[in-house]
Amino acid sequence: MIPSKFIGILSLLIILTVSYGCTNNPPGSGGGGGEFSYDHQQNPGLSANDLLSDESFSELIVEIDYMPGYAPNTRALDSLRAFLEQRLNKTSVTILAPTQIPSGDQNSYSANDVREIESQRRNNFSEEGILATYLLITDGYYTQQNVLGIAYYNTSNAFFGPAYDDASTGFGSLTRYQVEAISFRHEFGHLLGLVNVPGSGTDMQTDHQDEQNGSHCDNESCLMYYAMQRSDLIEQLFNDETIPVLDANCIADIQANGGK
């Protein structure tokens, strides 16, 4: 079974389905104004095969913007890169140097808020052979205060700094490295179509969806497991920094859609 320290943290992660499946590209999304065009405003999961396989894109880049006080943990970014290199069929995975952007001066940010920030701040878009993704860290909570991160577009995730603070402070809490590493990996898992995201092509090879909790795995030991109890996080004392991994069923799903 998964260590109890992970139950609360995974309960804070969410995949957000949006209604932008047919929207036009923002300016510059065609890769520098050339003929190549890629829609970065589709539902989460709809670029799963492009992320997982090398059929259309052999390289991946991850752009990161963060608001003051919430620069991402370096070890957590190393953990994310290792995860992506392990599971994606790419010749290279590059996490660009994080860029600080101005505060949004908000206590909380909605999904529409983070979409608007991306439209103003994102600089890297997919081009021939190179798939670009975007990661935003805000200085306010999500509208649901206990949520750590959301997948809100097919190549975009947002994370909420004060929720990181809550999860990584106090008696028995996880380390900041653990909180960020788990949430970064988990939300990218949703971009990969886990678990059973409609239209992603990452179909279940064996039924393992926790239907009561949406696009999450029913295995308590899996990175994609979902649980609601925050108290299990707060009340425990931990002595290691283990990060949960994908279970065999999740790995089989992404391998069937072009991953490793």
Score class of each variant (00 low, 15 high):
95 I>T: 06
78 D>M: 11
185 R>Y: 01
159 F>H: 15
185 R>E: 10
123 N>T: 15
87 R>A: 00
83 F>N: 04
56 S>Q: 12
189 G>C: 07
27 P>H: 08
104 G>W: 03
83 F>L: 06
5 K>M: 11
90 K>H: 08
140 G>H: 05
249 N>G: 02
175 T>A: 08
259 G>A: 04
59 E>K: 15
187 E>A: 04
65 D>R: 09
111 A>G: 14
244 P>N: 06
205 Q>V: 15
191 L>N: 04
89 N>V: 13
95 I>H: 07
191 L>C: 07
127 E>R: 14
237 L>D: 13
232 D>I: 03
99 T>C: 04
193 G>R: 04
176 R>A: 07
161 G>K: 10
119 S>F: 08
236 Q>R: 12
118 E>T: 09
83 F>S: 01
131 L>A: 10
75 R>L: 13
97 A>M: 04
213 N>P: 00
205 Q>G: 13
250 C>N: 05
225 Y>C: 02
179 V>L: 07
113 D>P: 01
204 M>N: 09
63 E>V: 02
234 I>Y: 15
146 N>P: 14
64 I>H: 06
228 M>S: 14
208 H>Y: 08
49 N>S: 10
235 E>C: 12
121 R>N: 13
171 F>K: 10
27 P>V: 11
49 N>T: 10
136 L>A: 03
156 S>A: 15
182 I>Y: 03
247 D>S: 12
103 S>Q: 05
248 A>C: 00
213 N>T: 09
21 G>C: 11
217 C>A: 09
238 F>P: 04
39 D>E: 09
210 D>F: 12
73 N>R: 05
177 Y>K: 02
136 L>Q: 10
16 L>S: 14
188 F>Y: 15
141 Y>T: 07
200 S>T: 01
212 Q>Y: 09
132 A>C: 14
119 S>A: 15
109 Y>C: 09
85 E>R: 13
64 I>G: 03
223 L>H: 04
166 D>N: 13
218 D>F: 01
80 L>F: 08
135 L>A: 10
207 D>R: 13
76 A>N: 05
185 R>Q: 14
116 E>I: 06
66 Y>V: 04
93 V>T: 03
248 A>F: 04
58 S>M: 04
